[in-house]
């Protein structure tokens, strides 16, 4: 014979039609003999009927357009986050800054040529490296825009589908 506590799960399932046949037999026997559980079973069924009859709300007018705008913004953010594009665009600026900094720091004269190859080397990433931190992806030669975006979006150690500090 089931205990009342054990019967609860079966009562819940019977009320919404999710009870296995074997369990149904055991529960029926319990309900015949237990005056406390019978009304509980009736109440469960009544609540199920009320909830399943909840009238659905319509999605607010203009919802699709507002969502579409947000998804469009996601796409352009993805472009913005493609740092490879940025690094390529900013390369001449960076080079100029390096040269200016080197010139100031070492007081080079016009006659001393700057070794641009050496400068470039200091900015390059060792291709043998296999385990790179997230930030290193930005400088990796063969990173795709997708993995870049994924790295940015999933930088949080928690499940990205959880809150992830995204609080707006």
């Amino acid at each position: 014979m089931l205990t009342c506590k054990e019967a609860e799960a079966l009562i819940a399932r019977r009320a919404d039609g999710a009870l296995e046949t074997d369990d149904g037999v055991a529960l029926a026997r319990h309900l015949r003999e237990c005056n406390a559980c019978r009304p509980l079973a009736e109440d469960q069924a009544i609540v199920v009927r009320a909830l399943t009859a909840r009238p659905e709300a319509n999605v607010p007018l203009g919802f699709a357009g507002r969502l579409s705008d947000r998804l469009d913004a996601e796409v352009s953010w993805a472009d913005m986050l493609n740092w490879r594009t940025w690094t390529v665009r900013l390369a001449p600026v960076a080079a100029a800054l390096i040269i200016a900094a080197a010139a100031t720091a070492e007081r080079v004269t016009a006659a001393d040529p700057i070794d641009l190859a050496q400068v470039a080397e200091t900015w390059a990433i060792d291709p043998e490296l296999t385990e790179l931190p997230t930030t290193a992806l930005f400088w990796q030669a063969e990173v795709s825009a997708d993995s870049m975006l994924e790295a940015v979006l999933t930088a949080d150690p928690d499940d990205p589908l959880l809150e992830a500090g995204y609080d707006q």
Binding site: E8, A9, I11, A12, R13, A15, L40, D43, Q44, I46, V47, V48, A50, L51
Partner: peptide, 13 residues
């Protein structure tokens, strides 16, 4: 899940 659903309905009644 079963327990939560049972208790929820019990309180909703």
């Amino acid at each position: 899940v079963e327990s939560r659903i049972f208790r929820a309905r019990h309180r909703l009644r």
